[in-house]
Design a protein around this nucleic acid. Structure first.
Lengths: 185, 185
DNA sequence: TCCTCCATGTAAAAGGTTACATGATTTG
DNA sequence: CAAATCATGTAACCTTTTACATGGAGGA
């Protein structure tokens, strides 16, 4: 079984919350906090078909004659799709994920509530913090070394922005874990 | 003329600093602060050829018989490549760039020193701050509204992370502008 | 009637990932 | 001499972007 793109997991996560049509999903991408996903039909409709071909989603319509194929088509998650979603949410957080796939990690975290227990989200944040602290530490050390070796320039400043991005993410993770823990009391 | 990918501009920027081979560039991507670019040969060598075909870069070798084509091939920027690089660096910062193309903006900023005057970098940061402040403000308002309408959940926390990422970027931009201004005295 | 929104699709093009392949040179 | 590194490439595959296309429904 081949890899699943962030877009595909986003679709699966949204369909888990509520069965809906491709058009509904496009509107969600266009208007809500998930706006950094493209809402172009050329990405979403093919992605839905791939998921359907894999058996992760299905449409409600019985296979009666399709009449007008241009009619609203509501998809829902299959049991297989559900278990794939949960398996994805439960994956451990590796260092490489933090370096190369931060958006995917955040997408996973966003979909945890309602699909896996809070304990899973807390475990996720713990692993996330660890990996992030390690990587951000390395970057910071690298940056300080470079800083002392050359005069100020825009390349250095851009590097600093990258380091601070990871540090901000780390601060968020610590805060989020604290919030979730007090929320569970 | 078609669009140029971030990878291609990264190659152009590095070649402006110093003529070098594809292998050298791969090492740079593998080991320096530009490590979030892939160092796979399957991306870099084809990109170099596209740039060569466009006339932005050229190799030093005269067109003598190529003997062993597996020999080190050092590329340098052509005048056309240089002016394309500068034109890219000088583009105004639009709101959509901030929303959709933050990595490209940071890449541009990183390559400014040595290629355009400091005043261009300062103008860039000014426009960047404005667009970023506006967008981060919208996101923050959106987030506060959502926060007050529903109980705490991981989706909300993930959203918060996104907002804070933009806010951190904004804080960096203000700081960077101050640093560059005092550096110019 | 005209325009906008609903709702779904296709086609072409391009870029990147992964995996594989080749052979020279340097290092232990 | 063997292994690692230098150095460049190809091929298949896949996703995404962009642009175009189709029609129904509802409101001004």
């Amino acid at each position: 079984m081949k890899n699943t793109s962030n877009l595909e997991f986003a679709l699966v996560g949204l369909l888990k919350q509520k069965p809906q049509s491709g058009y509904d999903l496009r509107k969600t991408f266009a208007k809500t906090a998930m706006r950094h996903f493209s809402d172009s039909p050329g990405s979403i409709y093919p992605a839905l078909r791939r998921l359907q071909a894999r058996g992760w989603i299905a449409d409600a319509k019985p296979s009666s004659q399709p009449e007008d194929p241009r009619r609203r088509q509501v998809f829902h998650l299959t049991p297989q799709g559900e278990s794939s979603l949960v398996a994805w949410l439960e994956r451990p957080v590796a260092r490489e994920d933090v370096v190369w796939r931060l958006p995917e990690l955040m997408l996973r975290f966003a979909f945890m509530d309602g699909n896996v227990p809070r304990s899973t989200a807390l475990r996720f944040l713990g692993q996330f913090e660890q990996a992030l602290a390690a990587y951000a530490g390395e970057l910071r050390a690298d940056f300080e070394r470079s800083s002392s070796q050359m005069p100020l320039n825009t390349g250095l400043l851009a590097f600093q922005s990258g380091v601070e991005g990871f540090e901000a993410q780390l601060a968020w993770a610590r805060h989020a874990r604290a919030r979730l823990m007090e929320d569970s009391l």
